[in-house]
């Protein structure tokens, strides 16, 4: 462990030196994205990165991604390094919940945007996603599809499944909404849930999805990061429906992935950088991304529209409106 840490510290020093040497033009907004895991998950972090790249292109911002690789030893140091060198530090991942409170108050000149958790810390703007609202739609969709007649992929039983990554509050917030959404369609709908216990064990994610399918679930919602790749692989193999998460994941298996519950980290990331560039960054507040402002939504891609029947889609639109208008109140996991 020591060796690894020493190596990390050394690499960080090299990285910092390299940065300062390269130098940035003074007038460009400098934004860093610090993530707990790694890019390439085709989901959560990639979504945030998409927003960052858009800001780079459209706003000419100087951007940098720092990946912590799920190594807690990196959390504090990476945020601090980013804070020293950038005007805006966007921190993504539940795992940083303590690290951000430790670091942010010490860098008065830097703005911090912390995604995925609600809270209160000096210098930190919390960006709160109402994943429960988007998941409500996913649950309603799952229940409607599972009980559909004449669909070869479902048996018509009112049972739906959900596979989570680690057992943490954010994921429970997804599940609470999902369950409520399924029960909104059919009060007797059974919801099977399970946790893989890891974000990068697709083999076990697959096993879990196969097990839920065996227990009657014909539509399974994955909220498991890299492990969710296994859920989609299981759906492809055993022929049932899956619902993706965070980024549009329909392309991973176009005939079985119904849609994806999008958490628009890309929109939020872009918005934050834009606000900073235009000098109107909302400091020390909580910004909500919800169904109403498109911060969360189902992905209505071409392949989704092909798989989701028109009447189901219409009903989902109606539900979306009801939630936005406050006619349906989606429970939150606290």
């Amino acid at each position: 462990m020591m060796k690894r840490r020493a190596a990390m510290v050394f690499l960080m020093i090299v990285a910092v030196v390299a940065w300062s040497a390269s130098g940035f033009a003074a007038d460009r907004t400098k934004a860093a994205l610090v993530i707990a895991g790694k890019l390439g998950d085709a989901s959560f972090y990639d979504s945030a990165n998409a927003g960052l790249r858009r800001a780079e292109k459209e706003l000419g911002a100087a951007v940098k991604v720092m990946e912590c690789n799920f190594d807690p030893a990196n959390y504090v140091t990476y945020i601090a390094t980013a804070a020293k060198n950038f005007d805006l530090v966007i921190v993504v991942g539940f795992e940083f919940i303590d690290a951000i409170e430790q670091v942010a108050p010490k860098f008065k000149k830097t703005d911090f945007a912390y995604f995925d958790v609600d809270g209160k810390t000096e210098n930190v703007t919390y960006v709160d996603f109402k994943e429960n609202e988007g998941s409500f739609l996913a649950g309603a969709l799952a229940a409607m599809m599972a009980t559909r007649r004449n669909d070869p992929l479902v048996s018509g039983k009112a049972i739906v499944g959900a596979v989570g990554g680690e057992d943490i509050p954010v994921i429970h917030n997804f599940l609470v909404g999902y369950e409520q959404g399924a029960k909104h369609i059919d009060p007797n709908c059974k919801v099977i849930t399970g946790f893989v216990g890891s974000w990068n064990d697709p083999a076990r994610g697959k096993e879990m999805a196969l097990n839920q399918h065996k227990n009657g679930a014909d539509v399974i919602f994955q909220v498991a990061g890299g492990s969710g790749e296994g859920v989609i692989a299981a759906a492809k193999e055993a022929r049932f429906y899956a619902i993706g998460v965070d980024s549009p994941q329909e392309h991973l298996a176009p005939d079985v992935v119904l849609t994806s519950m999008l958490k628009r980290l890309d929109v939020a990331t872009f918005d934050m950088i834009k606000a900073k560039a235009e000098g109107r960054f909302p400091r020390d507040t909580t910004v909500s991304y919800e169904l109403k402002n498109g911060g969360v939504d189902l992905s209505w891609s071409e392949s989704a529209l092909r798989l989701i029947p028109a009447d189901v889609a219409a009903r989902l639109k109606a539900i979306t409106k009801d939630i936005a208008d406050g006619k349906i109140v989606v429970k939150e996991y606290k």
Binding site: K38, G40, F70, S198, N200, D201, P202, A203, R204, K206, G226, S227, E229, G230, A233
Partner: peptide, 10 residues
């Protein structure tokens, strides 16, 4: 699985 996911040996 027909994919590589980093850390998949888990």
């Amino acid at each position: 699985l027909l994919a590589f996911v980093s850390g998949m040996s888990a």
